[in-house]
Design a protein around this nucleic acid. Sequence first.
DNA 1: AAGTTTGGTTGATTCACATCAATGAAAACA
DNA 2: TGTTTTCATTGATGTGAATCAACCAAACTT
Lengths: 256, 256
Amino acid sequence: MNKNQTTIVSLLKDRASCKGCGLASLCLPVGLVENDIDKLNSIVTRNTPYHRGDMLYNQGEAFSRIFIVKSGSVKAYYEDKDGNEHVVGFFLPGELIGLEAIHTGLHSCSAAVLETTAACEVPFEDLEKLSSELPSLQHQLLRLLSREVHNDCGMVALLGNNSAEERVAAFLISLSSRFQQRGLSAHEFNLSMSRAEIASFLGLAVETVSRTFSRFQDKGLLEAERKNIKIMDIEALNEIGGLCASTAFQLGQKHA
Amino acid sequence: MNKNQTTIVSLLKDRASCKGCGLASLCLPVGLVENDIDKLNSIVTRNTPYHRGDMLYNQGEAFSRIFIVKSGSVKAYYEDKDGNEHVVGFFLPGELIGLEAIHTGLHSCSAAVLETTAACEVPFEDLEKLSSELPSLQHQLLRLLSREVHNDCGMVALLGNNSAEERVAAFLISLSSRFQQRGLSAHEFNLSMSRAEIASFLGLAVETVSRTFSRFQDKGLLEAERKNIKIMDIEALNEIGGLCASTAFQLGQKHA
DNA sequence: AAGTTTGGTTGATTCACATCAATGAAAACA
DNA sequence: TGTTTTCATTGATGTGAATCAACCAAACTT
């Protein structure tokens, strides 16, 4: 094996480990030294890719592990007694899924994959154990849980106080800024979720979401061609939806 | 000092420490052995009582410590750019306040006391440090953060999908069960928050909350005499509001 | 390539809740 | 004790978004 081959092999290894992961700056490794990242890596499983409709876990299931989106996207939802689905969150790369279940030990919602998605899996017991050995990891885990609380507070504020236009604008702003954080375009992106899923998440009817998209398009704020969204006037959208939940809540990091 | 006096003194000491606190089974000490509770106790400050309107912290303030309600109650809210107040949560004894701020290091909302209230104060740095020494404490801290996520998810579901009647019923059920958990009556209690604060939290107008109370009263589900609430038919209320956010979310522990 | 299904858009109608307005009753204050 | 202020209730009216309904365009079938 010559030197070049060694380099390639080790690069490939890195790509498939926490160390080489491009999301490390958003995820659990934040603040960890290289040696500790290796320890974290040793408790992480990388599954074969999931496809649209695949479930990470189901409502009612026992909690044993958290998932982290590596690429693709995931929705969290629960089914009510009539079997209606209610979306409570969307997850993008670097975001942790399943945190709501630590408390009771049971998942209170289901997590379904929205498109071809890679995810890391971390047994929670192992994560807890390692966290008590590595203060930095404990710190980041607490921060990520807090991020979730923060974002959910923002959603409560949004759903409690804002109009359909404000909700949709806030949703688009949120996605845009999260894509940007991940090195993607803030101005053009594809939605992995349907209008119905957006509507469910925002507490609106599908028709209202559709009409709001059309109205924004008429005003020249964006161009929506099915799943493809081009944001033309991000300032104006921000004006409508960005500040309504106030500067206090940047719904930036996770859902909405 | 005779033996009786010694006993009384140590009892009083206990009352003012985590060890003797009646809320220990809901709060951070869960799962800790006596010796570890003492360590926890050593980083907790018990402030002189707060009064209605006093602030625990203000939106925008730097985060340094969490609060835990010992008696009384607290609301969390944020002010939008127009100065309107939006309630995002109510906290009862044993519930942790300020968790949303760990992530950014800044409080994204304000916390105001609703009635004469005692609260414990825990410097977060100390709590983190102690948590990495005591795995049980780390575990409970994670559980309490997760409880918050869980409850907020429930609120998102409630606000996104349910009618005014369902929201008010769910709110009352939630309070009722939380009072019961704390050894108080599930059937009769006093609201520490105004109708306007309830309305803000539930994303409704004051008038709608008031009318809904009246309608419930007409149906014989409850008797509301200003702040005093007597629940007459908890089953029926559960039927309206309890199951709507499904069995998945018991909004029981924290905020409505 | 025609038929079927699914997802999205648009229009017409309805309704639940917000808003506006007035009144009453309890605290708060002088 | 009267006055002011605040909070809760109830009624009348208006409206934003849900619902109902039709249609269109992709995407999937065979």
